[in-house]
Amino acid sequence: MSAGLMAYIWEGLGVTLMLTVFGALLGLVFAFIAGLGRSSNRKVVRGAAMVYTEIFRGFPSLVLLFALIFILPQFGYQLNTLFAGILALALNIGAYAAEVVRGAVKSVPPGQLEAAVALNFTPMQRLRKVVLPQAVVAMIPPFSNNLIELLKATSLVSLVYISDLTFAAQLVRASTGETTLVFLGLLVGYGLIALVLTTIMRLLERLAARRLGRQVPTGLFARKEAV
């Protein structure tokens, strides 16, 4: 393969990683806002959070992406295509992850909150100091799944001509005719990225668990439920 084509691949890899990382970060913001909003005292906030999670979980990322790129401009909003890609992915994955946040927060034993009240923490301090640090440990394994879903969904952006890894591979295939090789390479590429992401999440999980004085087994297939 020529150096020029290889450069496409590297650039595409960069775009895919960027979509994944920024999509995840923005999605995390949506997830926390909506997930915590679901247990807000205020009805409006609860309602808005519910509408977001219920609606955006149902939208296919691709349709959302088309909407952002082709419909928004008709109302006078022209998003940068790459940003539109990140936003569409983040809105979608954020709605799934919001349910993870909500479930994890609910899984913190009520006695923890009661102890925080007994020490007269403010509601914000209860959340920051007691609930979230414990809930985060329970969030990480399902977040890991969300992240892999996100990675896979990034390949959709090639359909709106964002030059991600899939897009670059298509280019290479078109100019070399090496269909089998290119797609096999692509599979291996995504597989490797997924492996790296999963490993990072495992490390995070271990770190978070250790802060709670728990042990998480280290084997690749070992995953123990939190005690």
Partner: peptide, 25 residues
């Protein structure tokens, strides 16, 4: 209040369990 099931904060070491409220509350 002290509870039947202790309810220590597992995300804090022992001393911090005791100092967190005095410092931040």
């Amino acid at each position: 209040m002290v509870f039947q099931h202790f309810n220590l904060f597992p995300n804090m070491k022992v001393l911090r369990n005791v100092t967190e409220a005095p410092i931040h509350v």
